[in-house]
Design a protein around this nucleic acid. Sequence first.
DNA 1: TTGAAAGCGCTAACAT
DNA 2: ATGTTAGCGCTTTCAA
Lengths: 346, 346
Amino acid sequence: MTPTRRPTLADVAHEVGVSAKTVSRVLNEDGPSSAETRRRVLEAVARLGFQPNLMARSIRTGGPDTTVGLVVPDVGNPFFASVAGGIEDAVHARGLTLLMGSSDDDPEREQALIDTFLARRVSVLMVAPAVGAEHSRLRAHRAAGMPVVFLDRPGAGMTTDTVVSTNRSGTREGVAHLIAYGHRRIGFVGDLPVRLYTRRERLAGYREALAAAGLRHDRALIAGAHDSASAADATARLLDQPDPPTALLSGNNNMTLGVLTELARSGRKDVAVVAFDDVPMASILEPALTVVAQNPTAVGETAGAIAVERLAGDRSRARTVSVETRLIPRGSGELAPTAGQVNATG
Amino acid sequence: MTPTRRPTLADVAHEVGVSAKTVSRVLNEDGPSSAETRRRVLEAVARLGFQPNLMARSIRTGGPDTTVGLVVPDVGNPFFASVAGGIEDAVHARGLTLLMGSSDDDPEREQALIDTFLARRVSVLMVAPAVGAEHSRLRAHRAAGMPVVFLDRPGAGMTTDTVVSTNRSGTREGVAHLIAYGHRRIGFVGDLPVRLYTRRERLAGYREALAAAGLRHDRALIAGAHDSASAADATARLLDQPDPPTALLSGNNNMTLGVLTELARSGRKDVAVVAFDDVPMASILEPALTVVAQNPTAVGETAGAIAVERLAGDRSRARTVSVETRLIPRGSGELAPTAGQVNATG
DNA sequence: TTGAAAGCGCTAACAT
DNA sequence: ATGTTAGCGCTTTCAA
């Protein structure tokens, strides 16, 4: 059996007995063509299983590829998976395909992925920046007309369109909710490293809520963890101190898993919890979990819409869009502190 | 300011005062080059911010692109997100990038995505086939050396490497578990359409377990749903019949959410549940959720590993790999039927 | 060690 | 309505 070379435009042309350009015209509905020619060309295309080489086309037209390059810390993370789904929805109508890779939150790996995407001439670049990454090299590309959008976290070294969640106000609302139910000592379980944008913003929101209520900020109530297991440990430590918190705010999905696991393990049903980021089973938990829900799909859709506008020629200045979070009271955040709990400082 | 055309190989060559070929040689570590030339070339490359056009290279070398094309029903689904993560892990070392798109379980959309990937000359094609999709057109591409791998569900119209979960034996194990705890009437809440591969396999496993225990198969115990809301309705109907089930097996994540939501709503803590597919918060639920856990990351890694072997020249016949599921008893599956429950047929 | 020419598959520009 | 020529950015081939 022959090596089965893929048929080219020339093969189709030869088969039909026309020039390559004619085949190209038919396929791209470029100039005019007779009905008969069109029919025969399409027949040959189908019979040979011809598929135009998009790369060759791109190279000739000079334009960018029809892909959107997306770099996220982890493709397997449901949050970013939903973001990706939203992007897809938004750019699909424009015929764009999503190309994505995981940086594992490593700036070097992120840079390598970005380079790959640039070499592939993606038409849009979207990045959820790794901690410590720097993006000034992308300025030139943006200037050259390639939309660059930062997601979930702002980038460093350049100004461009950015889509984030309302981390600060969302957290503020969540903490205020706990305060409204009488809590005075509220623990914060955030992720690490502390310079991570989302962590910083959410912690800032936490502090603002305390300040607004005239509550003292106590460092002993702040914990950080890398994953759900260490978040469970951190929770245990928070609760195992003199004058412990009567409520907890968990800073993201993984933290929430750890916090709830520790509360379940120790049988503590008296600790109020508000979680940042919604989880599928939230309403089935006991008590049902009160959350500050993010909208990852909307984050993706917004980013996609901005990119499409930029591609359409929008040259207005870079904007930062904050996608609203939403407090969803379900029970765990409406537990008031009990008499049994130490309730000292106020 | 000039339109900032992207620098080409020729630009770099001109800058340094050598030929394009020399620059190419340096960059690809092809033939020999003097240390001095190399140094000057690399300097110019860095200064101009040159990035070789991968598409132009591909077109000339004729080889496939360095991407893996992946088509799944929904990028935003955590199961497929984890699969994607596994694939990435497996192919990353080979320098391959993941290109992915959602078919929305629509055969036409799936075909369009596949065509796009083929046109882009991906080096590997992976598909989680939509219901009703047909793939005989891919035979030629596979014959031409492009690895094709089906994921989660087998494809139709061609034979090729396939990676699935042990749906049947996993479900059998889950149902046997319930039987071992004394249940004789076990409901099955599966997804739709009924011809969906995973649904069929899981239902088959359910029946096998009943048969092995000498239990009668009762159609009134089988329900199907499209999403979690309708799964909740289906659950209510299952339980609201004469001689209702004392235990339920839910066929996937979405079904599980519906089943548990209905049980929580109606306050039924006496119904045993085994869920197919693990969920993050399973151990925090009350009772903690017994699951037949899939291993989506392993599914992706396996598929990636097979593809890499194929690219390396493996021409052995197509194989189907079943990734093991694992029964994780946590509580909900170990509830025995109570005296209060009707327990008629046996 | 380096360069010139040709060509990958396709389309823009200009014929006819 | 169709064909011809040239060239996108790169690498292969063959020379120098």
